[in-house]
């Protein structure tokens, strides 16, 4: 085994830790892709959904329910909220073909934030999780159980949804609606229900992300805004309409973030990611892995 310089080990440690956290960004970004595919809209308040999911999980666990049950409960809450956002903030604006939905999803998120501040308080809280305390060691790089849970959980949910998209009629119908809503209607698919379903699944994924991020960081109202931006960056860089590349972009952003926090100072954590995002948008608006858009008249 090669013994590496301690400095490089520390950097690698940072990169791995960030990359694992980046899987959570990828999961939230995956939620963006789901709703964008179905109805060409995303929730600018998705970070608030993550936060609400985390708080719902904390409260459920606080009543003495086992961890897994509270995670499931949080996901149900997230699904209901995702559906709600689509219903009140997106449907009308999209029917009128305007971009009011961007404002409206920001607004609904703001209300959620305020509710959380008043119901659960402004302070950060720990998220109780039944993970063992120690860490696993891979060639000198340690990975804690909660970090591993993020990666496994994110991969698990994404795989599950992808399988459902392929192997259930509901999933195939959602894909059909995103390819051609009118033709899907002609097959008897109610495109509105398919869009609602995508938003519910997207909300559930966000809430799940909250319950796995919680044990690593802490849970508080401030986590929301930054998460939206990061997940959205991941989705846009990967391409809002393509599944491929999401995980890579998520891991890359998480790693870059941690490394720049380590090298430049914790306040600068997010800066390089944002610069990369702006560059990516400027150079390839359709996303690094996305398809080119043809302008239609």
């Amino acid at each position: 085994m090669i013994i590496l310089d301690a400095k490089y080990i520390a950097l690698a440690q940072m990169a791995v830790g960030g990359g694992l956290m980046g899987m959570a960004y990828a999961l939230v970004a995956y939620g963006f892709q789901l709703t964008y595919a179905a109805g060409k809209a995303v929730n600018f308040g998705q970070g608030e959904l993550v936060m609400l999911g985390a708080f719902a999980g904390i409260s459920l666990a606080g009543t003495g329910l086992p961890y897994w049950v509270s995670v499931l409960g949080a996901m149900v809450a997230g699904a209901v909220l995702g559906w709600f956002v689509e219903r009140v903030a997106v449907r009308l604006a999209l029917k009128q073909h305007n971009e009011g939905w961007i404002l409206l999803t920001i607004i609904v998120g703001l209300f959620a934030l305020s509710s959380v501040e008043n119901i659960w308080g402004r302070d950060d809280r720990p998220f109780p999780a039944p993970w063992p305390a120690g860490a696993l060691d891979f060639f000198g790089i340690s990975v804690t159980w909660p970090e591993l849970a993020i990666a496994m959980g994110a991969m698990g949910i994404m795989t599950l949804v992808e399988l459902a998209k392929r192997y259930t009629m509901a999933g195939i119908a959602v894909q059909a609606v995103s390819a051609d809503p009118e033709a899907a209607e002609l097959c008897g698919v109610r495109s509105r229900s398919a869009i609602s379903l995508s938003w519910a699944v997207s909300g559930a994924a966000a809430a799940f992300a909250g319950t796995v991020i919680g044990p690593v960081t802490t849970v508080g109202p401030t986590m929301a805004a930054a998460l939206t931006l990061k997940a959205f960056s991941v989705a846009v860089v990967a391409g809002l309409d393509s599944g491929f590349g999401l995980v890579i972009a998520g891991i890359a952003l998480g790693a870059v973030e941690n490394l720049s926090g380590y090298v430049l100072g914790s306040g600068w954590r997010e800066a390089p990611g944002l610069i990369l995002l702006i560059l990516a948008l400027a150079l390839r608006p359709q996303g690094v892995f996305g398809k080119k858009i043809i302008r239609k008249v």
Binding site: T168, M169, A170, I172, A173, Q175, A176, A179, D180, E182, A183, A184, L186, C187, G188, V189
Partner: peptide, 27 residues
């Protein structure tokens, strides 16, 4: 419909199953 409107990204078989969507179980 005019212009065929098949679901391009889906397979032939998935397209056909979608035709029968209302009478197939969703999940």
């Amino acid at each position: 419909p005019e212009g065929r409107r098949v679901f391009g990204p889906l397979t032939v078989e998935e397209n056909l199953f979608l035709g029968a969507y209302p009478r197939l179980p969703s999940f």
